[in-house]
């Protein structure tokens, strides 16, 4: 069996590139529709995405529910309006409430 390397012409690549772009442009969701943002103080214990700081070093390590210095990705715009028990709200920045004991 002889090994034959196919060649692809430059013209074919240029047109394939243009076709791929048009597929992507057509299928792209409306801007901002699927954007996410970091939301602090809303993740259940152990279900945070990531955060630095005392009591929680990274994903899945938060100790308590709704821990103020751990965050989770949520759909953009939903962070501060999310309903949580006992009148809590999420925040795009770290919160002082619900910290694990040092």
């Amino acid at each position: 069996m002889t090994y034959q390397t196919k060649t692809i012409s430059g013209v074919a690549v240029v047109s394939a590139f243009a076709a791929a772009l048009s597929i992507v442009a057509f299928a792209a969701p409306a801007a901002a529709e699927d954007e996410q943002e970091k939301c602090y103080g809303v993740a259940k214990a152990g279900e945070n995405d990531c955060a630095a700081g005392p009591g929680t070093t990274c994903a899945g390590t938060s100790k308590i529910d709704y821990q103020g210095n751990s965050w989770k990705l949520v759909p953009k715009g939903s962070c501060e309006t999310m309903e949580l028990p006992d009148g809590r709200n999420g925040s795009p920045t770290a919160l002082e409430r619900d910290r694990p004991p040092a």
């Binding site: 090994y3 034959q4 390397t5 196919k6 060649t7 692809i8 012409s9 430059g10 074919a12 690549v13 394939a16």
Partner: peptide, 9 residues
């Protein structure tokens, strides 16, 4: 074109 050629080979 080189990458495409390798993949179709």
């Amino acid at each position: 074109p080189e990458a495409a050629a390798r993949a179709s080979s």
